[in-house]
Design a binder for these strands. Structure first.
Lengths: 197, 197
DNA sequence: CGAATTCTGCACCGATTGATGTAAAAAGGA
DNA sequence: TCCTTTTTACATCAATCGGTGCAGAATTCG
């Protein structure tokens, strides 16, 4: 009944996500974006309304995939809780190593966006807060599990420990963007595990 | 012999520092800056060459004052090393609490700049790396001290522990910008101390 | 009081920003 | 095949960006 789209929406969102991830929101122009996407601006505006809406879609996609990945690791009851958390750190290390460009990591889109926009854009701030909460819940559950089974010795409140692990992960992202190498970031994770045992 | 300046250079640098701190480098326009400074653009360009040079001066000023503060705490040999690190965390908490605006912290200019520019501006990346190294050295020394005196039980390499503490601090900044309250951030710091004892 | 020199205020520059309008192109339904 | 509908390509918009040029104001030195 009408002319069909020449692009796949999910594929466009993936590319947009990577572009925003690498360059940030403000310093990614819609022209840069369209060049990366191989699309005309009118097509993008027609499909995604405006830059901010497109970013929110890309951010949502990032959180849906990445956080789901992390939650899957944390909810795997076949492993002792402490091993699940170790696996979570390993996952962070692995993606951070894979995304390194000229000695600097890309960090994580949610952390990057928290720094750039959370204080200035309440709606995006809320999206990020919800995503953090989702990860905290999963982390807390795993930690409570580990405390019960004895493989996590710390008697601190599971939610506090979860916030700690989350903060360390953010710190690892910052270190990666500052140019820290794999071994350094791995050592940060290993040391953080000491606080749980 | 010539018309004198109508402003104090250090005072201007302080205001510029705060403006960049609150809004980031890219999204602080030279016009915003000049309004905050109460100066005309030509005066600023005349005194500081261009926006990037002004930012570098402001960043240097921030690092000189803030890092010096932290180093002073860490080098105070009248306290046991573990207490010095506790005092360092307390200092972070205090400034983070003081700088909160509508529920979001300002974080730290060096962390913010690392996220925004370190990967894209090698010279600024180097300035940040040097500042980090300076803090790591002071941290390492204090930690080595604590290991010798027995108040730090962890047998990990002091440099590794220093990087860990540094990463946790960065994580606390991120949490603050994400809207975490004082108690949450304090708990992160307290948990990090567990990894040292 | 001039002369020399620097700083300030204002206008202006080209480039780039996010966003829109318009007309042709591409498909399906009758 | 023609009509309807959506997408596409291209031009263009006002606003803002960092940066500059220039004339006048303000100061010290002679």
């Amino acid at each position: 009944m009408a002319r069909p789209r020449s692009f796949d929406e999910d594929q466009v969102l993936d590319t947009a996500m990577c572009t925003f991830w690498a360059n940030g929101y403000e310093s990614t122009s819609t022209r840069d974006l369209c060049q990366a996407l191989g699309l005309d601006r009118s097509s993008v505006y027609n499909a995604f309304t405006n830059k901010r809406e497109l970013f929110k879609r890309a951010l949502t996609r990032y959180m849906d995939t990445t956080t789901a990945d992390q939650v899957r690791i944390l909810d795997n009851h076949e492993l002792p809780a402490i091993e699940r958390i170790r696996a979570l750190f390993a996952k962070i290390l692995q993606t951070e190593a894979a995304n390194r460009r000229d000695g600097h990591g890309l960090g994580c889109l949610t952390v990057n966006t928290t720094m750039e926009l959370a204080g200035r854009d309440p709606e995006i701030g809320l999206m990020l807060a919800r995503d953090t909460e989702r990860r905290i819940i999963s982390l807390s559950a795993a930690i409570r599990c580990g405390q019960r089974d004895g493989d996590i010795g710390s008697t601190r409140d599971p939610a506090e420990l979860a916030r700690f692990v989350n903060a360390v992960i953010a710190g690892m992202r910052v270190a990666a963007q500052g140019g820290a190498d794999d071994a350094t970031i791995a050592a940060i994770a290993a040391t953080a595990m000491d606080a749980l045992a």
